[in-house]
Design a protein around this nucleic acid. Structure first.
Lengths: 342, 342
DNA sequence: TTGTAGGCGTTATCAC
DNA sequence: GTGATAACGCCTACAA
């Protein structure tokens, strides 16, 4: 039917005005320049004709694409889908569209992906891959491209960010274990070049100290990646070290899953012999064997917050740098129990 | 530094030719029109200057956006991330970019999302939400927009599609149970307005017949949605019906998770009293209690196949309609065991 | 084989 | 308050 392309000229003709006027009438920022009555007539015509401005033409003129890049390690990590949805839903309501990019933790790939985004004139970029020393961020800043960090942040507070109170989350995990009676608690820490790994380790140590316990360096092992395999390896190493412990806080749920495997390998039972706490509250971990206690993160809200921040930066590149830190919360299931005296 | 926008004119100037020539030299389809030597000089200049053609300008002229829409129910369903990655990786290699749209199974939302995509001049759309009677598809066809169905297909074979042999997959599940000695096998079927639900039910019945067993209608219950809650409800109904059975094939893993819950509610143990088989082989179901036997689907490859099909359709709207059906495979874990005589 | 010119649909800068 | 006009960067007849 109306498969014919309808342009601003069509709208203008129908409303009996010049295309320039129609453009002004249709754009919120310039609507005040045109008589209310005319504006209404144009709006009506646009409506009748089902007019949608051509984004290519607009973008060519305005140098804005109404497109935002989202850079993440891997969409398959269950952490990201809800964050992405939070971002998309929010940006979508403001007429923006998301370009997803997976880096697979590879610097070259990351560069290529960002290159591709920039060549498409993205108006801003949301970065979920931030490492403490990150050349990418320098280039992005140099290009005056609005950035917001999500999930992983930097010590350097010069970037806007939406994240979670990782430290507090880890403290909650420790508190819980201490209350159950645990005294010798281990930590499988995440990689220490990303904020989530660092913050949770810090929270772990702080939690112990506040309980009057001394963090034992031998009970802290740092995983190279946030993966199940890494968790298995680290937990195995911990068990083989011979140091005694009755509970472990894992840097995230995948590491916790690895702990489960290592415990099984060693013929140990959770929570009977070792309690385990995860981080992220991944979907369906309530049906693991045993159901995993975990620190819950408001993923979707982290996404919406990031989207709001990038919108602010886009509309004003010099807007004050804001950081949104959302609270974590402990979900207690069956992987934690009082320690048994051996 | 080189943050200045570099255009075709810059490239042309550096190569000592006119912009028109530069354009021809840079475009694969017109490269043959220009002397090899000149073309090389232009290519070199473009390389030196890090030239990227402005997609907005190109799109304005060519009416192609190098953008493909992907319509899915909800990215949070663990089924989709790997499919999306397969699509993005493949399309990305061909210079295309993906616009994701979540419908949340809501028709209005679906219309809005597709509207948004169309206003952005997508070159094609990959649809993972196909229902047997689907107005959306009519409008898309009417607009001569290339479509490919993924995962869910139609009986109507006029759409290109990339999917999985659902029927054969369900047959594999039944075969396995029969071999273990089960004779009274139930099925929690998925919704019957989507092909995955239908195909798996068909395969379930066919599998029984091939084993010389008669499908018992009372042992088939149809879930309204592919969710954990629906699975729980259906399984509970089945248990309450009083019909005896020793195994159940679930329409997908989420339904299987619901079965687990219902069994637990009823104080029954899996696989001791009831064996369960899922469908999709979701991540980490190997660590469920008990580890879930499931029909594995090559998600990523389904995505890449869909991407290839849409590329074909885009480059030739009248290309023959192709359907790619990928094989399913049974992964046996600990949720299936021989039946015990009660 | 290469140069020239016009236009894709929109917005912005002028006049009027 | 509105109309005319040029320009965004690229592609593509057509001319040379």
């Amino acid at each position: 039917m109306s498969s014919q392309r309808v342009t601003l000229r069509d709208v203008a003709r129908r409303a009996g005005v010049h295309p320039g006027t129609a453009s002004r009438a249709l754009n919120p920022e310039s609507r005040h320049l045109v008589k209310a009555e005319t504006a209404e007539r144009v709006r009506q015509a646009a409506d009748d004709l089902q007019f949608h401005p051509d984004p290519a033409a607009r973008s060519l003129k305005t140098r804005r694409s109404y497109t935002v890049g989202v850079l993440l390690p891997d969409l398959n990590n269950p952490l990201f889908p809800p964050i992405v949805r939070g971002i998309e839903d929010t940006l979508g309501r403001h007429g923006y569209v998301v370009l997803l990019g997976n880096t697979d933790n590879d610097e070259d790939q990351e560069r290529r992906v960002v290159e591709g985004m920039r060549s498409r004139n993205i108006d801003g970029i949301i970065v979920a891959t931030a490492r403490q020393r990150h050349p990418l961020l320098d280039t992005v800043v140099a290009a005056d491209l609005p950035v917001v960090l999500v999930n992983r942040i930097l010590d350097d507070p010069s970037f806007p960010s939406a994240s979670v109170d990782d430290q507090r989350g880890a403290e909650l995990a420790v508190d819980h274990l201490v209350q159950l009676g645990h005294r010798r608690i281990a930590h499988i820490a995440g990689p220490q070049d990303v904020s989530t790994g660092v913050g949770r380790l810090r929270g772990f140590e702080e939690g112990l100290r506040r309980a009057g316990l001394d963090p034992d360096p031998d009970l802290i092992v740092v995983a190279e990646t946030f993966t199940r395999n890494a968790g298995r390896t680290c937990m195995a190493a911990l068990l083989q070290s011979g140091r005694s412990f009755t509970a472990v806080v894992a840097g995230n749920d995948l590491l916790a899953l690895g702990c489960y495997l290592a415990l099984e390998d060693a013929g140990l039972r959770c929570p009977d012999q070792v309690s385990v706490v995860g981080f992220n509250d991944m979907p369906f971990i309530d049906q693991l064997r045993p159901p995993l206690s975990s620190v819950r993160i408001p993923h979707y809200e982290v996404g919406t917050a990031a989207a709001e921040l990038i919108l602010d930066r886009i509309s004003d590149h010099r807007a004050p740098v804001a950081s949104r830190v959302l609270p974590a919360e402990l979900v207690i299931r069956a992987s934690t129990a009082p320690p048994v005296q051996l």
